[in-house]
Each structure stands twice: as structure tokens, then as C-alpha cells.
């Protein structure tokens, strides 16, 4: 994971729960907390931090990660508005995540820790995203999707029918777009 992700997490926790909360989370995990945006750090550290944040705030871990996804998306958008401007609807934007956005990210940062998405394009109003990643950050994807839907002003439902956390080989995120 890139340091920038850690820094956004720190930002989110500090904004929501104060500096003390983040400080205590670092104390619990014993991690130094001085992350440099462009450097790469072990994936386990982000999971340790999420665990500690859950302990500290009592918020459900999945919900915490989802929130983090929601928190991350605007920053992504600020830095790469062209990815959003290229699409006028949520469905085609989500299709571009694996086919275009993450491919561009990989070009700039060959060591980026990126998930893999497969798609089932059932219909104009339905889309299934299959998520695979050793980090199992499927709830981060949920948060990112939710914030993206807000950006495109789209109502939708999401069924997380199969999950890697339950032993599935990949997560199935079934999306229905409502108008």
C-alpha cells in the first residue's frame, strides 16, 4: 500500500475522532505513523490500523472501511478529474475502473497494490463486479462505489452476494441502477 492511503486514513480518523484517537491507534499498533505518500508500506499495516480503529471507536470494521472508501473518492477525483469527466453515468465509470483507471495507475506506480475487477454486463440497469485482491478490501470498493454514485447522482442497490471474507474465491458485487 502506498503511504498516501495511510495518510488519508489518518486524515479521516483525525477529522472524525480527533488527534487523540489517531494517536492512540498508533500507540496500540506500535506503528510509527510517519508515512511518505509515494513510498510503499506493508499491506498488513493498513489492516492493523483498521483493527485498532475499530477497537478505539467501536464502529464495525466493514463500516469503517466503507467510510474510508467514501472518504477516499473525492481525493481521487480532485487529483484525477479526467477519469470522471470521461463518463456521464455511473455504470460506464465503474466499467472503466479495471479497464482504464487502474491500468493508468499501474503505469505511473508499477508497485501499486491494485485489485482486479471482472464484470458481468447484464443490462443497462444491472452490473455485476467481481472483486479479487489478496488484501480483501471489498468494503473499500463498496465505499468507493457509493461515493461515485453520489457523484453521478445515481440511486442504486448493491448486493454483496459472495464475499472473500466468507471463504469465496472472489467477491460478487451485484449492482442495480434505479431511476
Amino acid at each position: 500500500m502506498k503511504g498516501v492511503v495511510f495518510n488519508y486514513l489518518a486524515e479521516m480518523v483525525e477529522e472524525g475522532f480527533g488527534l487523540e484517537a489517531w494517536d492512540s491507534i498508533l500507540q496500540t499498533t506500535g506503528l510509527s505513523g510517519n508515512y511518505i505518500a509515494s513510498e510503499t508500506y506493508p499491506d498488513e499495516e493498513i489492516l492493523m490500523l483498521v483493527d485498532a480503529a475499530h477497537e478505539k471507536t467501536g464502529i464495525d470494521k466493514k463500516e469503517l472501511i466503507r467510510s474510508f472508501g467514501r472518504y477516499l473518492l473525492p481525493s481521487f477525483r480532485e487529483q484525477n478529474p479526467q477519469f470522471f469527466e470521461a463518463h456521464t453515468d455511473l455504470r460506464s465509470f465503474l466499467l472503466s475502473v479495471d479497464r482504464m483507471i487502474h491500468i493508468e495507475v499501474r503505469k505511473l506506480h508499477p508497485d501499486a497494490a491494485l485489485p482486479e475487477f471482472d464484470y458481468d454486463e447484464e443490462s443497462e440497469s444491472e452490473l455485476t463486479m467481481y472483486y479479487t485482491s489478496p488484501r480483501k478490501l471489498c468494503h473499500l470498493a463498496e465505499g468507493l462505489i457509493d461515493a461515485s454514485a453520489e457523484h453521478y447522482n445515481t440511486k442504486y442497490t448493491l448486493d454483496h452476494t459472495e464475499c472473500m471474507h466468507d471463504g469465496a474465491e472472489r467477491c460478487t458485487l451485484h449492482l442495480k441502477f434505479l431511476d
Binding site: 488527534l19 487523540e20 494517536d23 498508533l26 510509527s32 505513523g33 510517519n34 508515512y35 511518505i36
Partner: peptide, 24 residues
């Protein structure tokens, strides 16, 4: 707020800055 918390946050930021400078 606990002074220790602030102090640690300050030290963290200082360490981060030093590291960033070395990296630069």
C-alpha cells in the same frame, strides 16, 4: 488535550519531514 499527544504528533510530523527530505 494531553500534551503528550500533541508532542507525539509533532515528533511524528518532524520524523516524516526528515524522511521526506532525505528521500527528496
Amino acid at each position: 488535550m494531553d500534551a503528550d499527544v500533541l508532542n507525539r504528533a509533532y515528533e511524528r510530523e518532524k520524523a516524516r519531514r526528515k524522511k521526506a527530505e532525505a528521500l527528496l
